[in-house]
Simulated assay, not measured.
Amino acid sequence: MKSTLKIAALVLAFAGLSYSAKAQTTPTTTSTTTTTNSGIRYSIGVETGIPIGDFKDFHKWNLGGSVQADIPVAQQLFVTVNAGFNNFFGKTIAGVDVPNIQLIPVKAGLKFFPVQNFYVQGEAGAAFLLNKDVYNDKSTAFVWAPQVGVQFPVSASGNFIDAGIRYESTSNFVSNVNSKAQFLGLRLAYGF
């Protein structure tokens, strides 16, 4: 129940941040960073990836999704707010099924466009563990994710396809044990 309250509080905080930023931004129209009339760009995406490090010994791959808001703060620079869901599918080892791990990462960061349509992004935040029976030490961990990607415009009104590759890692969920959720992932999103 505490995690549900934490998640709800974070979602409301990010929604408030997006709303207040919307009131302070002006529409921008550049070929590299097309925005909506409010100046904020939104995207909804599908995410997948492959675990790396010790995490790959127990999990096969992950599948999830996310929503993201890009808030313009300067020419070619955006503040990002991202919330999602990731399910890491467990392996079967010596006849024993490793349980899936389900995380809700909530992150904020920066996205910069050094050249047209190509961006570099870095985010950090908290990852909330949904199935606490897997790790009973902590239900929240620090998460960080550097990413590079390309945005392809698909309409004159500013809609776009966002394809990004990233490394994502959490801090340990169990003290004194390597319990980091680490993966190389792909996010394919539709933006408006």
Rank of each mutant, 00 (worst) to 15 (best):
E123H: 07
Y167A: 04
F160C: 02
N176Q: 10
Q151S: 12
K180F: 02
Y190N: 06
V148Q: 01
N100K: 06
N178M: 05
K111M: 13
D133V: 13
F89Y: 15
A126T: 02
T4Q: 08
Y19N: 12
Y135I: 07
A126Q: 03
A127S: 10
V150E: 03
I44N: 10
T32Q: 10
V154F: 00
G45H: 10
W61I: 00
Q182V: 08
L63S: 04
K56L: 09
F58M: 05
L63A: 09
F112S: 07
G122S: 06
V67P: 05
L129F: 04
A69V: 12
Y190K: 05
F118L: 15
S175N: 13
T36L: 15
T140S: 11
R41E: 11
T35I: 03
V150D: 01
G45A: 13
G122R: 03
K22W: 05
S43I: 06
I71M: 13
K138P: 00
K91D: 09
G185K: 12
G122H: 06
A15V: 13
G158H: 06
S155M: 04
I44R: 07
G65N: 03
T92R: 11
G185N: 07
T170W: 01
N87Q: 14
I71K: 01
K111R: 13
L130D: 09
L17A: 14
E47N: 15
G125H: 08
N131I: 12
A145P: 02
Q116D: 14
S179T: 05
Q75P: 03
T36N: 15
Q116S: 11
